[in-house]
Amino acid sequence: MSVSYTSILWNRQKKAYDLGILVFVLVFSVLFFVGHAVLHPNATFETIFIRNFGLLAFLLLHVVLIIGPLARLNARFLVILYNRRHLGVTMFMLAAVHGVFSIMNFHTLGDMNPIKSVFLSNLSYDSLIHFPFQVLGFLALIILVLMATTSHDFWLKNLGPKVWKALHMMVYVAYALIILHVVLGALQNENSPILFGIVLAGFLLISSLHLLAAFRERSIDKPLDQATAEWVKACQVNDIKNDRAKIVTVSGERVAIFKYNGKLSAVNNFCRHQGGPLGEGKIVDGCITCPWHGYQYLPENGQSPPPFTEKVETYRLKLEGEEVWIHPEPLAEGTYVKPIQLAGS
């Protein structure tokens, strides 16, 4: 957790993770170059280079997109999620190499500004077959650069969780643009059925995992309240395990209701570190502990214990018999709410 900022807090796990990414990139590139040299001896070095980095970025984007649902379906995948940020930034850098070299190779020969040339050298915007597919890649790259440059904790804290979340959800827009970029590009170059196959298989994998995770969590995401409701029924006391939480959705926000020490408290589910699901974490040493990287918050006020400064919104609860009711209106981040004392404890 942060008192002040460092660039990256390195540890052995992160180093091993990054080494894994590096080895994958190197092995893929060597195989790709050798394979190309054998199968297409006429291809120029630049062409292979550009394709190699485009494909690498595209593959890593798939990994980035499936980690989230995989980790929700099975906790074993939390290992990959742990450092998803480095994966995302690497993916961006590979895509940037691909984009910059494409521009250098195809758009710097005339006397037009190279970026303008991406948009203007081919004006067949009304044609499907001849569409300037490079433009789609360029727009996707802008989204990726925004995400990569705002991946540090500083940005989540200072842009606020809403803006940051919205910015990083744009990865799906980027993904759609990239699919079109690849498909339309492939139509213009050579019709490689393998490339279409990869795109289709990737799309099916990503969408089915997302659907599966959403189906599993449908009970969480079903809002309890209509927009104007006052108190709403959240669950039964017995639905929550000790030192664990139940996640519910009120006023469009996920809220985690924790049971600990014979008490109940509710906080916003979105970890202020990188958006991990607090309600899937445990109470450790009296603190809600995020399952992703272990940031901690006190259940009764949503504040990280001093000297740390992270805070999440809290919610009011009340008990009616065995039923837990929640007030949908969030209280300001870090507001103390007296925990509900459960009978018999």
């Binding site: 008192v3 002040s4 540090h152 200072n158």
Partner: peptide
């Protein structure tokens, strides 16, 4: 952001592009 003054110099490099 009170965390910034205490951060090392390369932290500034990291938030520059953003």
């Amino acid at each position: 952001d009170e965390g910034v003054p205490k951060a090392p110099w390369h932290f500034r490099l990291i938030i520059l592009p953003g």
